[in-house]
Structure formats: structure tokens, C-alpha cells
């Protein structure tokens, strides 16, 4: 060990001098940053690295998981019976409610002039356990135990039973990194349910608070207003509950109102969250957003750029070229007829 302290600045046997090695790794880092930030070429590398560090994260989570497992396995009969009764009651309650909901959905469909009620916008759910959670003021992220092998994709919506939690940012084979609504780098397009006013809710770095920084001072917003997703932005569908307004300050000197809202999801007490797949052709499905490389994410096909309508020109193009080809699915008429971002009248 003592012999290691020799030859600073001189070329070493392996890898050259410290300065050379530093230059090499610095260039490597800068290239990696450029590729990751500007060109998004490194998702594959991230995928591999996420897989490589997943055992560490599982090990870190193992004490908590072990405690939970021991608790569950030594639960006595009485407790289990009580819990069972409670769950039965809760399920009956939910069934009654969903009955009412189905009736309402049918009625809504009839009012909209659709033949049958639309299926719910959420097509498939997957429960995922939270493996790791970071709730600092600089970074609010979750790690889930589901990844690409379960079909999880980048930019997928994550919910719990009360409201929106966030979206996936990086997906590994068995794990997925989720950025929370409350991360200072996250913003979600919302609308105020009472008035239909659209705005953006930005994370603050505090797990109990969202900021609405872009509302003018005379905006119609009150304490207690519910914020739901507006369906813009390409990740979340329309109408999912996000937060409730807790503070509205109107300052005579400031042109903007200072509004704070508390997320409805219990981010700090959840152990399980839901990953959601949405029906792409549903009117309430998230509108596709243009990503950094300029291409549309696979979102709502009825919103995808359609071929330009045939123009009556001097030399009429052959009809076969402009008519929908037989292989192409016929565009869903109701989905196109109703404006996809139509605000439901309050």
C-alpha cells in the first residue's frame, strides 16, 4: 500500500498520467451528457445500468420488506377476520358505487349521441410496489419493482387510489424510475374542475404542495377547488384528480395569483401504486405530445397527423391514392367527431 503513493504526474504503467486519465474520463462524461440530454441516445445504457444496480436497491429495500413479511405472516386469526370483514364491506360499497357509475356512463353516452357508453379510458392496470423513495427538496422520485419485462414504458402515468402520483422517466428491465408530481422539475397540465380553467401545476420539492404559478390575479379560483388533469401534455388522460387548492393569495402589486394545492395522492404513505395503460383511441386519452426528437409519441391515433385531404387540382390524383387503404383501420367516427379536448360544461 505504501508503494502506491509514487509517481504523481508521471506516466504510470497503466492508463497514463492522472492528467491524461482525467481528460479521458471528463471527455467521456461530457459526451455521455450530450448524448443523454440532447439526443436521447443513452436509454439503452440506462436500461443496462438500471438492471445492474437493481440488486443493490432490492437489498436496500429488504429490511422494510422483511418487516412487512414478518408482520403479515404472524398476523393472528382475529385480525385477519376483522380485515376480511372490512374489505367485504368496502367492496360492497364500491360495487354499489360502480353500479351507479355505469348508469351515469350510459346516460352520458346517450347524451353525447353515441350508440353505447364508451369504455373507461384506462384499459389495463398494474400494481407496483415502491422499492425506493427519494423525497428531498431537489429531487422527488420513486423506484418501482415493475419494468420493461412487464410492459412498462417511458412516460407512463402512475396513480394511487386517491389521485395522480407521477410518470415514469427511466425504465429498466425489472424496475422503473418515477418522477413525482411534486418534483421541482415536473409540471402537469391541469384544469380547475369547477370552472374549466386550464393551467399548469408545478412541483415545489415538498411532497405536500404543488404551485400554480401561471394564474392571473383575477382568475376564478378558490380554496377547496379540485384540480383534475386536462388531458394536454401527452401523458395523463383527462379528468383524473390531482390536487385540491389550499392557499390563494392575491397581491395588489403582483399580476399573478399565488396559488398552492395539496396533492390528493398519499405519496409519503403509499407502499403500492398503479401503472396505467390507456385506450389510445378514447376521446379522453392523453393528446400526443411532440417529444424532444420531434416525433409524436404513440398516443391518440385520431390525433395523429392525417394525410392531407385530396385537393381538386388540374391533374386529379388517382382516387386509390387518397382513399383510405383497406389495411388501414377506418378512423373511429365518434372519436373524431367529438373534439378530443372538449371541456365538459360545468
Amino acid at each position: 500500500m505504501a508503494a502506491f503513493g509514487t509517481g504523481v504526474g508521471r506516466p504510470l504503467g497503466r492508463g497514463g498520467s492522472a492528467g491524461f486519465r482525467f481528460t479521458f474520463f471528463a471527455i467521456l462524461s461530457v459526451v455521455a451528457m450530450y448524448l443523454d440530454q440532447r439526443a436521447h441516445y443513452l436509454e439503452q445504457v440506462r436500461y443496462v445500468l438500471l438492471a445492474a444496480v437493481y440488486p443493490v436497491q432490492l437489498a436496500v429495500n429488504s429490511p422494510a420488506a422483511a418487516v412487512r413479511w414478518v408482520k403479515e405472516s404472524f398476523q393472528n386469526r382475529e385480525e385477519l377476520r376483522a380485515e376480511n370483514a372490512h374489505l367485504r364491506a368496502a367492496q360492497r360499497d364500491l360495487e354499489l358505487r360502480s353500479m351507479r357509475y355505469e348508469g351515469l356512463a350510459n346516460e352520458n353516452g346517450a347524451l353525447r349521441g353515441l350508440a353505447g357508453a364508451l369504455p373507461p379510458v384506462a384499459e389495463r392496470w398494474l400494481a407496483a410496489e415502491i422499492v425506493n423513495i427519494q423525497l428531498s427538496s431537489l429531487r422527488q422520485h420513486l423506484l418501482l419493482d415493475r419494468g420493461a419485462s412487464n410492459g412498462v414504458f417511458r412516460g407512463q402515468a402512475v396513480l394511487d387510489d386517491k389521485g395522480l402520483i407521477g410518470q415514469t422517466t427511466h425504465v429498466g428491465p425489472w424496475s422503473a424510475d418515477v418522477i413525482l408530481l411534486t418534483d421541482p422539475a415536473h409540471a402537469v397540465p391541469v384544469l380547475i374542475e369547477r370552472t374549466g380553467l386550464r393551467t399548469i401545476a408545478v412541483g415545489t420539492g415538498d411532497a405536500a404542495s404543488l404551485a400554480l404559478p401561471y394564474l392571473p390575479g383575477n382568475a376564478d379560483i378558490r380554496i377547496g377547488d379540485l384540480l383534475v388533469t386536462s388531458g394536454l401534455g401527452g401523458v395523463f388522460p383527462q379528468g383524473y384528480p390531482v390536487a385540491r387548492v389550499t392557499e390563494v393569495r392575491r397581491d395588489a402589486v403582483s399580476p399573478l395569483a399565488q396559488v398552492r394545492a395539496t396533492p390528493l395522492a398519499h405519496i409519503d404513505t403509499d407502499t403500492e401504486v398503479m401503472l396505467v395503460w390507456f385506450r389510445a383511441d378514447h376521446p379522453a386519452a392523453p393528446a400526443p405530445a411532440v417529444n424532444a426528437s420531434g416525433e409524436l409519441k404513440s398516443g391518440n391515433p385520431s390525433m395523429q397527423p392525417q394525410p392531407a385531404p385530396p385537393k381538386p387540382k388540374a391533374a386529379p390524383a388517382p382516387d386509390a391514392g387518397t382513399a383510405p387503404s383497406p389495411g388501414e383501420p377506418a378512423p373511429a367516427a365518434p372519436a373524431q367527431a367529438s373534439p378530443p379536448q372538449a371541456r365538459t360544461p360545468p
Partner: peptide, 20 residues
């Protein structure tokens, strides 16, 4: 970076510099 970096290479560059 994988655990907590917004871009890959950020902590790597900073830590390379400091260790140098």
C-alpha cells in the same frame, strides 16, 4: 447518475474532477 442524476454523466464528471 443512475440513482439520482437528471442526465447520465453529471456526477461522473464532477467526481472525476474532484478525484483528479
Amino acid at each position: 447518475d443512475v440513482f439520482q442524476g437528471p442526465v447520465l454523466g453529471e456526477h461522473a464528471l464532477a467526481l472525476s474532477l474532484v478525484t483528479y
